[in-house]
Amino acid sequence: MAVPEVKEKYAGRIQEVTLGAGSRGKTVAIGGESTLPFLHFEGTVANRPAIAIEVSDREPDDWSPLLKEAWGDVMGDPAKWAAKAEELGADVIALSLDSAHPERGNTGADDARKTVRKVLEATTLPLIVYGPGQKDKDNEVLVAAAEEAKGERIAIGNAEEKNYRTIVAAALANDQVVIAKSPMDVNLAKQLNVLIGDMGIPKDRIIMDPTTGALGYGVEYSYSVMERVRLAALGGDATLQQPMVLTVGYEAWRTKEARTNDEVPQEWGDWAQRAILWEANTAITLVNTGANLLVLRHPQSVALVRKAIDRLMAGA
């Protein structure tokens, strides 16, 4: 019996963005698809979603003991940490210059340069470099990072509506990619892409972070916002066609489910299994609505998500 044609003919396509150049042994392209996630029957999925492992330049004091257990000593040294992350299957290293935060060390541009240099030398993978999330310090250390990594095509972030100009300028000056982060809202994401685009940075150098909540903590908002972004992009809205990155590890490991096993209901099950699944299931749910790059924390969830993506790409 004839079934009506359900293939969509989309007018738009997601922008492809490549991370890594110069001394990087590997480059990673994300985006480029012409359909919704893994619907191989109606379009091309040009690149598999990539996985970045988050590495901090400061031994985190608020991370779950499970993460400390998994990474061990390397957590005190971003270079070693990055090398181990590469070994454990990362596509990209997401280096967080957290120590620059005024309340967490207040390190400056010179420290940032040194850290970036060390990590570049310790891994062959492309880098994302995140600032500490405080306006002035972000500007200070991201400019330094962008200069230090000139020629390596790293991504720097986050450029947000209230603070994007310096970061974008640093990306422009040093030929880097910029991460545009907006609060879970299609129109705000669009506006930021337009503003950043207006500064003259080419579209193949913008990745958008529409912000996510973890499973159980608002993941459904991201699910729908991302789906709307993606449908608009495929529908031809050029201002929303940037590939999407999500800081899944940060969100998932902040939840009570992942962080602790103290006084939790017995029905929550085994702590380690729950925590890792919390990260992996948040990740896969976002992959299901268009995530192109996931920043994760635990080696086991990295392995799980990687294998899941392998399987999803197998239909291509």
Binding site: R165, T166, L172, N174
Partner: peptide
């Protein structure tokens, strides 16, 4: 040039 250029581009 780069140091000032960034400030010119970002509006500072």
């Amino acid at each position: 040039l780069r140091a000032w250029g960034i400030q010119l581009v970002d509006g500072r």
